[in-house]
Write a protein that binds this DNA or RNA. Structure first.
Lengths: 210, 210
DNA sequence: GGCATATTGTGAAATTTGTATCAACATAAA
DNA sequence: TTTATGTTGATACAAATTTCACAATATGCC
């Protein structure tokens, strides 16, 4: 097997790899075994060059006649993105959004597990919500440490965000996906992704207005 | 008032403007009237230069002694992002995610209105869901045209995505925010934003793994 | 006034991200 | 065998975005 060098893939490439793989899963299901860059590009709404560039970066080679072998490519993307034992994830804040994300996500990926949820509402805690055990937030550290959890999704009320984030880092969380409307700051070595629905809608509104 | 030239602001700048405004609302609530670039930068997790650059692009000037006048800045961002009469938005797909987004969003912005939702489940249609009237999808075109709706949020099952997108464009939708896991292609002049939770999580997992 | 300090605004450089071009090569058909 | 076609891989180029560096200027203090 080719020696892979993917020490520092561009962020956008990583995102596209995730999406390539999802599309390729579908292609496999349809019985396809090989795929050309222009086919994949069309399905992803990209240029063929960009597809080939991404695959070049992860050191995968196709053949001029048959294109890329889907199964090999999926496996390689898996070795790059997934960790062997899988990653555990927690959801903090089991309001509408937290529950929606949880039930949407559960079982979607082989190597990513939502193993716990947290809330400060006693109505929700100490029971199964959307298929996941929901604990009171004051047990964050305990559960994170016991289960060696590294990734947290924040879907809680704005007021509590900063305090919870601090506790998460203290407990050993290394990556945060922040869906609250409160921008966070994290120390070096901690990874943060932020996404806000309102911002996306306002951007669209701006574009449509033109 | 300064003549504004914002024909074609960079996409990233538009996103940040939306976020500046949200933060500035809070600052106003706390009684602040002026703000320096480095203060805003710190709250947003950016560099002061980037803040000043963005404000330069929208033609807003501050003073060396007092920084920026928050109220003026908020107003200016509003004139750039918002349209005077506001923009109407529909949600297509009232599953968990659709309902969560709707109830999260309702009332969040003065100039953005979720005016209708659609689903193909008769259990959900012709009633108020999360504060918004929910119609059957076969009434998409009718409602969109009657209400002059330009923006749609897609939170439906993957299978139906392509067909629904086609209908939306046919009915006159100009901007789509796609939360399904199916990449879309749209003709020129139509704006598309795509976001996928799984991709964000996989990216985080990749980063944390390093 | 004169000096130290702090802030804005901006041209230019650097970085990141995406695109165009083309040589090399495999296949199929003449 | 030769030619036409189509694809990959790679280099060069272009566009978008961020950061650097610093002039210009306002304020407060001596």
């Amino acid at each position: 097997m080719t020696q892979i060098k993917h020490n520092q893939l561009p962020g956008k490439t990583v995102e596209r790899l995730s999406q390539y793989r999802r599309i390729l899963y579908n292609s496999i299901r349809e019985g396809k075994t090989n795929i050309y860059s222009h086919e994949l590009a069309k399905m992803m709404n990209l240029t063929p060059v960009q597809v080939r560039r991404d695959l070049m970066l992860i050191g995968y080679s196709g053949s001029q006649s048959k294109g890329y072998v889907i199964k090999d490519l999926v496996d390689l993307i898996g070795r790059i993105i997934d960790s062997k034992e899988g990653q555990k994830i927690i959801i903090v804040g089991m309001g509408n959004l937290g529950r929606a994300i949880t039930s949407y996500f559960v079982g979607k990926r082989e190597k990513l597990f939502i193993v716990a949820a947290f809330d400060n509402d006693l109505q929700k805690t100490d029971r199964i919500v959307a298929g996941v055990p929901c604990y009171h937030v004051n047990r964050l550290k305990e559960v994170i440490e016991k289960e060696s959890i590294r990734i947290a999704v924040l879907t809680l009320a704005p007021e509590a965000t900063h305090e919870v984030a601090r506790k998460l880092l203290d407990a050993g969380i290394r990556g945060i996906l922040n869906y609250t409307s409160v921008p966070l700051t994290v120390p070096p070595g901690i990874y943060l992704e932020e996404y806000d629905i309102v911002t996306s809608l306002e951007k669209l509104a701006y574009l449509v207005k033109q």
